[in-house]
Each structure stands twice: as C-alpha cells, then as structure tokens.
Design a protein around this nucleic acid. Sequence first.
DNA 1: CTGAAAGCGCTTACAG
DNA 2: CTGAAAGCGCTTACAG
Lengths: 341, 341
Amino acid sequence: MSVKDKVTSLEVAARAGVSQSAVSRVFTPGASASPKTAEKVRRAATELGYRPNTLARAMVSGKSRIIGLVVAYLENQFYPDALERLSKALQERGYHVLIFMAGNARDSIDTVMEEILDYQVDGIIAASVSLSSELLARCRSAGVPVVLFNRSQDDETLSAVTSDNVAGGRKVAEFLLAGGHERIGYIAGWEGASTQRDRELGFTQVLAEAGRSIHAREVGNFHMDSATEAARTMFSREETPDAVFVANDHMAFAVMDTLRFELGLRVPEDVSVVGYDDVPTSAWPAYNLTTVRQPANRMVAGTVETLLEQIENSQTAPCRIFIDGDLIVRGSARIPEGWAL
Amino acid sequence: MSVKDKVTSLEVAARAGVSQSAVSRVFTPGASASPKTAEKVRRAATELGYRPNTLARAMVSGKSRIIGLVVAYLENQFYPDALERLSKALQERGYHVLIFMAGNARDSIDTVMEEILDYQVDGIIAASVSLSSELLARCRSAGVPVVLFNRSQDDETLSAVTSDNVAGGRKVAEFLLAGGHERIGYIAGWEGASTQRDRELGFTQVLAEAGRSIHAREVGNFHMDSATEAARTMFSREETPDAVFVANDHMAFAVMDTLRFELGLRVPEDVSVVGYDDVPTSAWPAYNLTTVRQPANRMVAGTVETLLEQIENSQTAPCRIFIDGDLIVRGSARIPEGWAL
DNA sequence: CTGAAAGCGCTTACAG
DNA sequence: CTGAAAGCGCTTACAG
C-alpha cells in the first residue's frame, strides 16, 4: 500500500544502468542523449512510475513554471472567462496558474504580492488591480515580470493589455448620437480604474465634438448594488435620460433590471442602455445588451505572449497592448437607421 | 537595479551573527528561538528584504502548501463563486490554489492530474469532474488526499462534499405538486454526474409517491445550448408541460429565455420553472428563479476542513459531507397557497 | 536555545 | 554522448 513512495531520478538511473545526469537529460527537452540511453531510461521510468519533481527542478533551474494571477473578484463574468482562457493558454505552454484573491482591504494586495513572490513565480498577471510602485520595485528586483490585464498604469517597467477603451467609449457615443438621443446619461465604474477613465474620456470627447455633454452622471463602482442605486438616483429626477451608457456589462444588467422591474421603464423604448465588455450574459435574450466587445481571446493571447516573452528572454522590454473592440449592436438600445444589427 | 538578487537565509544568518538554523527557526512557527535571537534575525531579514523561499522549504519539508484544483469550466457561475471562496479560505490557512482546467477531451483529465502530482501538491480538490480509479490509485500512492466538490463517486478512499441532492429534488417535486401542476417536465443535466442522478431520483420519488410521474423528459447536459434545444423539443409537442424542473440554474436561464422570447410563453403564468444551485443570477429580477440553494459557503468550508484535516493528519479517514439546501421560492413558478415567498 | 552537518530531488557546468 | 561532483535554499535530526 504505502504512503509516499516517490520514485527519484537516482532510482531510475540505477534501474536503467545509467547516471542520474542521463536520466535528467532524457527528461529535459533539447538535451543530448543517445536514442539507446533515452530508450532505457524511459522504460525504467515507466516501470517505476517515475515523473520528475517539478519543485526540485524549479529550485535548481530557477524556473518554477508557475504564473501568479492576482484577481480581485470573480463576480463579473468577464474575469472567470478570462481566467479560464488564461489558464488553458498557459497550460498549453507548460505553465500553471497559482491564484491569489486580493480582497478589498488596503494592505491585502501587498500581502498577497509578497506571498506570490515567495512561491518563486516566473511571472505575474494582475487582473483589475493596481500595484503600488514599491510593489513593482520588489518584483523588478526579484526579476519577475508583471503584466496588467484589463488595466493600465503609468509605469514603464510593466506591460499592460487592455482593449482600446477610449476608442470604445467613442463608439458608444457615436452610436447613441446617431440614434437621436437627447439626454444621455453615464454610469461610471470605480474612478480609480483606467478602464473607467478611458471609457468616459472617449465617450465625452465625441459628445463634446458634437456640442453635447453628459446629461446626468452617477458612479456605480463596477458593483451591481451601487449601479442599482445609481440608476434609481439618475431616474428619480426630472428630465430623465433617454439613453444611458453603463461603464461595464455587469453593472448594465443591474441597471436594466432596475429600469424595467422597479421603475417600470421599457428598454429600449423609453431608455436605451449600452454596456461594455460583451460578457456571455449580454447575448442572453433577457438582456440582449448592446455593448463594446472586449475580445477576451485576443486579450489573453496578448497577455500570455508578452509575459512568456519577458520570462524567456529577460532582455525584452515591457509593452502596452491595445486591442480594438467592436461595438456589438443588440436590442437594448434604439438602433439608428443604417446601422446593421 | 539588478535582476535576481535573491537574499538567502545564509546571508541573513551572517548579518545577524547567528547560524542558518537559527534563521530557519525564527521563520518556522513553533520552533524554538530565544527572543534575543529572533530579534536579531528579524532585523537582519527586514534590512536585507529576506523572505523564505517557499519552494526550497517545500522540497525539504515535503509540504508544498499548494492545493491543486481541477475544474472543467467556469461558465456556470456556481464554479467561479466556489473558486473564489475556496481560494480565500485556503489563503487564510496558508495554502494556495494551483489551477488546472480539465478540457472535455477523454484523456485530458488524466494528463492534467499527472501534472498536478508533479507539482507535489499537498491535496487535490476536484470540482465537477470524475476521476478514474487508476488516477485515484496514483494519488493514494503519492499520499495526496483528494476531495470531490459538488460530485460524489463510489470510492471509499476519497472524500466528497455535495448538497443533499436527493432531498433537494424531493423539495422541488413537493413544491410543484403543491402548486397544482398537472404536467411536470424535467430537463436533465449530464447523465454521468451524480448531482444529476440524485436530483432526478429525489424528484421522481416524490412524484411516484403521489402516484404521478414525469410528463416529459429531455437532456440538457448542463449546457445552455443543449438546454435550449431540450426546451424547444419539450414544448413543441402536444400537451406541453405546465411546469419544468431544470437540473441546474445555468440551464434554467436558457430554458426561461427560450420559453419567453422564442416560444412566447409566460413564466410563471403558462409555465413554472424551477432550477437548482441558487447562483447569484437567479436572484436578478429578470429571472427571479425559484431554486434549491446549494450553500456555497458551507460546501466550501466543509471541503477545506476535510482536506486540511487529511493533509495535516494522515490517519484521518475520508468522509462524505452532505449539506442541506433550502428551496428558495421566487417568482418563476406559481406559488402554492401557504408557501411563504 | 543553538550550530554543524546532512540531505530534499533535481540540473548543470566540467571533464572525458 | 556520458558521468562525477557541486549546488539550488532550505529544514531537521543530532549533539552540545
């Protein structure tokens, strides 16, 4: 029976009649071993049920093949979707994801980052969190590349992958303007987020270019509860908006539900609603939400590419990747003539 | 500047004027070190920015403090929710989660399990996947405890945490019967899953006890697309059901949308719909789904408890945990008189 | 309480 | 191509 009968490379070597080095080489892609040796070693290994100990290998080689992923919460469907893709893509390249949930506490993120570093990760992906410059300095001195996912930050030492949020915001404004809306509201995300700021920037730019401005503005902080509150406030005043751009889909669902089931407004007849992200739920008939697609597949591919590039070639400079996101026109907003559905 | 200036325990020892052993003890909870030594070591450590290398520690101690989590997909909100809770709970106990996405390929799960074992994880949590007995034998001989999350399996060597699915299925049937429904349909999940079988078992038991039976049955495989198809088929025949129990919420959303937006049926006026899980979306006004709550918090607590118990005390026998789930009555189904909403 | 020594399971120059 | 030896950064008996 036996608990813990770990087979070591030394045992395999003995059985195969070769040295430990030979065994190691057979299990190291690209290392030199004669077909004959390889054959003997492989046979012995399978007979014994041997598999190299990843941790031991990590210690001596200095490469753990572990990527630390920091994520704040998984409630917004955009993140589990990204996590699943990220994990699969990394798996295919021989890496695995060690997950760290960063609570909302102030120091929580710092603690969590230290823990990540303790595991000797080869790289870090930070999804929707901001990192202090001290933290980044620690990562840099530890030689661990960091890439921000769906957030950007003023720091040349780290890579960031986002959709082009400014352009996305512009598309929404153009669409709403073309639809002939008179009073356009905006429900903002968390103001500390670059995504929030950029989306609003592009949105208001286009409005300004047309001699218009936001008719009403509330903050939803990227949370459903706050978004519900924001919608109540925005639609309880005189001259309610006839269109509202919500900074992400997750909040837009709460806004639509509040408009329809609490305030008795029809969407899109009374109010047009537009979101951002195009999470799977947006396509469900109950919402059928017009939104800007953040192409998760391309964002993930870009993230994995830059990160692995920096890991495998430490010369590589950090880079910013902007991925263009299309406006997906669906039934939650009045559709201007000539705009394909 | 400098890439990779990892500080070792030896350097800290030199600076503090003590041995490497002393440094190790100061960083090992419960190890013996005089206050004076501890003080000197801690000072040196902070000055140098030293933190123990988790991987090195893992190698020698044989405890990696890494838990492998295998999960098939994160589309059904129940899983990201569980993952977030699991990860947080484990983090608090000093463990971290290494994630492995098990694709749908036949051998994928086997490959993935081998990879997990290579990382010398201290334990494995398998969410919504079945493990072959060969795989379980490998884990056993490697001394790695496994606990199944939201699935059970006939094998005494592994623990499993589920809600009481039979009881849950019974509650749904009682509720639907009390509501005076005449033709009750059932949309099944993937037939290989214990959760699917148990829910259907409890459901049909109660129906049988009342001299009734399922009026129509289709299989949705726990996927939205299949569930949509299932709903189409079930409601395109004569004598359509006036109530349908869907094996989980994720499919129930697709069913409700199909009924309402494609088939023009009203829920609950024409058809009552009941799901299972009580994922967050079920409470959204657009669905307002009656369902059986799987208490994620308690399921996670139970999972973490059993797993850590087995890790920290290898004598511990595996155990089965059933957690009772309440029926949550909401507006998607006709409410029998006397049943509190 | 403390230190010297051995060793966890591997890989990697270094010779041959 | 191959092996002997050193070493990755720690912890853990073993003496003292």
